[in-house]
Amino acid sequence: MEKIFIVEDDREIVTQLEHALRKRGFDARGVKEFNSVMLEFSEYNPQIVLMDLYLPIYDGYYWTSKIRTASTCPIIFISSAETRTNAITSMNTGADDYIEKPFDIDILIAKIRALLRRSYDFTSMANTLSFGLYKLDLINSQITIDDKKVDLTAHEFVLMKKLFENQNHTVTKSELMQALWNTDNFVDDNALQVSMGRLRKKLAEIYLDRNIHTHRGKGYILEK
């Protein structure tokens, strides 16, 4: 599921965008603190950023420049400013596209999907995710390396998919429990630990267990 990071200070617009994007199969999240946009960007690790121009503390040009120092993630500028200069400046700063408010959500979705197609090779990787030499087969729920393979249960597959999608970034316990049980409220935290323990034991057969680390009190990370 592709992740869309929304850097916008109008909470009503953010809520509407999150609802519309999730309805169309995307994972969407609005920025929480405008003095830590880069930190939230790194933790979320999105495939697309929707960037407003006028923001608290620093404007969209500033944050686009900052993101460009660390990532080639596509950025779409969203602004009510109807001037050609803003569109040109946003592109020169590092944005990939521009759309004016008020916008048609279907046009925005079309722009997002076009950028995803151009920016990521989904044709060859549609059925697999990679971590080093390890491949996660999304069709057969298997992890393979060389001529070895490990079959995963439904729960194990969900855990590994989240870790592969967010490799080198901590996946919180809340995110994992939401993915496994569609909630992070009533499921005992111990259930997640048990599931992860069983998964690690199985992955020891191909030495992948040593790449899954626990961030105490936070979650888990798949890293080299």
Rank of each mutant, 00 (worst) to 15 (best):
L129H: 06
L116Q: 04
F131G: 03
L138Y: 00
S124V: 10
F131A: 04
R117Q: 11
R118E: 13
S130P: 04
T144N: 09
L115C: 11
L136G: 01
I139R: 09
A110I: 03
G132Q: 11
S141G: 04
R113V: 03
R117K: 15
T144C: 06
I145G: 03
F122G: 04
F122I: 08
I112K: 01
L138S: 03
Y134R: 04
S130N: 09
L136Q: 00
N140Y: 13
D137P: 01
T128N: 14
A110L: 11
K111D: 11
K111C: 08
T144V: 02
D121I: 06
Q142F: 03
K135E: 13
L115Y: 00
S124K: 08
L116T: 02
F122K: 06
Y120E: 13
I145K: 15
T123G: 05
T123Q: 12
I112P: 07
S141Y: 05
S130E: 11
R117E: 15
Y134E: 07
S124F: 08
S130G: 02
N127Q: 14
L136W: 11
L138A: 04
F122A: 00
L133W: 07
Y120I: 10
S141F: 03
I112T: 01
I139S: 12
D146F: 05
L138W: 01
S119H: 14
I139Y: 05
S130C: 14
I112W: 04
T144G: 09
A126Y: 07
K111R: 15
L116M: 15
R117N: 10
L136A: 03
L116Y: 01
N140P: 02
S124R: 14
T128L: 09
S119Q: 14
T144M: 13
L138R: 00
M125F: 15
L133I: 12
L138T: 00
K135C: 04
S124T: 14
D121T: 06
K135G: 07
A114I: 09
F122V: 05
Y120L: 13
R113S: 07
F122R: 07
L129R: 05
S141C: 07
M125V: 01
N127T: 06
Y134K: 08
A114W: 00
G132Y: 07
G132H: 01
N127F: 06
I145N: 02
S119N: 15
R113C: 02
L116R: 14
L129V: 04
L133Y: 05
G132P: 08
R118G: 14
F131K: 01
T123W: 05
F131R: 03
R113K: 06
N127I: 03
D121K: 08
K135L: 09
Y120S: 15
S124E: 05
M125Y: 14
L129W: 00
A126I: 12
A126N: 09
A114H: 13
S119W: 02
A126M: 10
L133F: 14
Y134W: 02
A126R: 13
N127M: 01
N140M: 04
T123L: 15
R113F: 05
L136C: 09
I145V: 13
S141H: 08
G132T: 04
L116E: 09
F131P: 00
I112Q: 00
L115A: 10
T123A: 12
F122S: 15
Y134C: 01
L129G: 01
L138Q: 03
N140A: 13
Q142Y: 02
D146A: 05
I145D: 03
A110H: 11
F131E: 00
